[in-house]
């Protein structure tokens, strides 16, 4: 599951809101942990360095300029897309305009 949306710093969230968000993320993580499906995940810093094109043009961007950035991801083990969709229903930041993208990790033949 890849999480896409605005950076918290750009949303003007209050300490109280941040704490309640944290609680929801924690509960969601615990739920996946207990179900034994969580395989890993990271949160990402909002600073972006983008390299584009043959000229390898480099731009440093802040989250405010991009609006939507990848904020982090979780790796979970599940049967299929539908199963992960069910898990993604508990993602806490939909109300902030957040998006969850489900992608399957490619497994290669050995």
């Amino acid at each position: 599951m890849i999480f896409i949306g605005a950076d918290y710093a750009d949303l003007g969230l209050s300490p109280e809101e941040l704490q309640s968000r944290m609680g929801k993320w924690f509960a969601w993580g615990q739920k996946m942990e207990q179900a034994g499906i969580l395989r890993g995940g990271e949160a990402l810093h909002p600073q972006i360095r983008r390299i584009v094109g043959e000229n390898r043009t480099v731009t440093d961007l802040t989250s405010a300029e991009v609006k939507e950035i990848v904020g982090g991801y979780y790796t979970v083990e599940a049967k299929d897309f539908d199963a992960v969709e069910e898990i993604a229903k508990d993602f806490p930041d939909y109300d902030l305009g957040g998006t969850v993208e489900i992608r399957e990790i490619m497994v290669f033949d050995k």
């Binding site: 710093a9 300490p15 993320w25 924690f26 982090g72």
Partner: peptide, 11 residues
């Protein structure tokens, strides 16, 4: 610091 805390305390 609160933004950082809210993210790092998720786990």
């Amino acid at each position: 610091t609160f933004i950082k805390a809210s993210i790092s305390w998720r786990k």
